[in-house]
Design a protein around this nucleic acid. Structure first.
Lengths: 233, 233
DNA sequence: CAAAAAGTAAACTGTACGGTGTAGTGTTTC
DNA sequence: GAAACACTACACCGTACAGTTTACTTTTTG
């Protein structure tokens, strides 16, 4: 909007507090972080911190809301589609995965999960409304491809959740659990591509067997038995 | 071995402490649990607690090791196979899933993850040695089925991780994040079965298209492009 | 430039926690 | 039944933390 008028001191202080708090919460967790430490990292007096946020809980809430809003932007643009379906799904998933595996985001997921057991009312945003499949825009892109006849899907929720598991599940879980350090982008893409191929082995339509070395007699009845509908108990 | 001679008082106290500690750690997390509270719940004096365990950290370690040992037993018996491959994989996965979704186990996963960020040296057991695919015995059962010609798999690690994502990923993640309450066994089985079907759409062999309504011309070149080998970066 | 608003430093309150010390009571074992 | 051992109750130490108070300085604004 306006060409960034210089931020007032109050705004700068507030931002510094939020940044420092996010950093601490991500690295140490909510309980292990002291407000003294946050104020120190933010270069701010403790009183100022408590002028901006009424309590440590409120500060945590504000940090979480900020990240949640950032993640929300993921659900919107499933990007246009010149490529074949495999490449499109791979590109889509790699983009999302890069965000999900960002150490900053992983840290927030950990913090949210941790506090969700101690104090469920904090961080309720992460549980209300939308599923992660929706959040990531998976259902949207599947709908699009289905509309173009490139996918044959009986239950979009089921398919979306399977795609999530195939391409995100393993790496995301490893990341959250610190199972290994950073993985290379190349490895990530390989995992994603193979996941997409498995997904297409069930849900792809013959029309899209593009550029493959040779395999004419594939699939066809692939979607012949897909019943799952009722969810939950 | 010996037909349980009555446990000595010391043994009973120790067990009570471990039980109370596990309960508290699962529900409140490590930091939010006080040793006073553990002692109280265990019906034990605080001094006794510190006679059995030198520190709160050591107590946490002992609790975690106990659960880890319990989970280890999962990796052994992939159970015999009278059924067709789909039913066998479904039965196998449902059994594992039941353990993974046990609130007690979920709570421990959460606690481990939380402490893994604050103090990685605790709970190292959960990261050393084996992958979760190994832990759950997925690779074993895939090897067996491959040996019988019922699967055509290029990379066992990749396939195992995909099966994990398809049948465990979604529900496990939901459970860990408290996304919904308990899900019914019937719903679980449905998700698992559909996951297995997607898996078989890529890795199954024609020989095993048993009892299907009608779909003779399936797959064959399914495994023609499976390259993934190099891991990590 | 003057008044209002916001920030700072530092001491302080009350509480909670991890861990120890002590003196005495119950339990096991020979 | 007595010596060795484990359990109990309880006071205690030092530290840490969320949040407040006070007295003072800087920034913003009209």
């Amino acid at each position: 909007m306006e060409p960034d008028k210089p931020p007032t001191l109050t705004e700068r202080k507030r931002a510094a507090i939020l940044r420092a708090a996010a950093e601490s919460f991500r690295h140490e967790g909510f309980l292990a972080t002291s407000t003294d430490r946050i104020a120190e990292r933010a270069g701010v007096s403790k009183r100022t911190l408590y002028n901006h946020f009424p309590s440590k809980d409120a500060l945590f809430d504000a940090v979480i809301e900020g990240y949640w809003a950032r993640l929300q932007t993921l659900s919107q643009p499933p990007l246009p589609s010149p490529q074949g379906i495999e490449d499109r799904l791979v590109a889509f998933a790699c983009e999302r995965l890069q965000v999900l595996l960002d150490p900053e985001v992983l840290g927030i997921f950990r913090a949210v999960m941790t506090e969700s057991m101690r104090a469920p009312e904090l961080s309720r945003a992460w549980r209300r409304d939308s599923s992660y499949e929706q959040l990531l825009g998976i259902e949207t892109i599947l709908d699009e491809e289905s509309a173009h006849g490139r996918l044959l899907i009986a239950s979009r929720e089921l398919a979306a959740s399977q795609l999530w598991g195939l391409v995100f599940g393993g790496l995301f879980w490893s990341g959250v659990m610190h199972l290994h350090g950073q993985v290379s982008a190349a490895y990530r893409e390989q995992v994603v591509r193979e996941g997409v191929r498995t997904f297409l082995a069930r849900y792809g339509t013959p029309a899209e067997s593009v550029g493959e070395p040779a395999s004419p007699n594939r699939r066809k009845a692939a979607a012949s038995r897909q019943a799952a509908k009722g969810k939950r108990s």
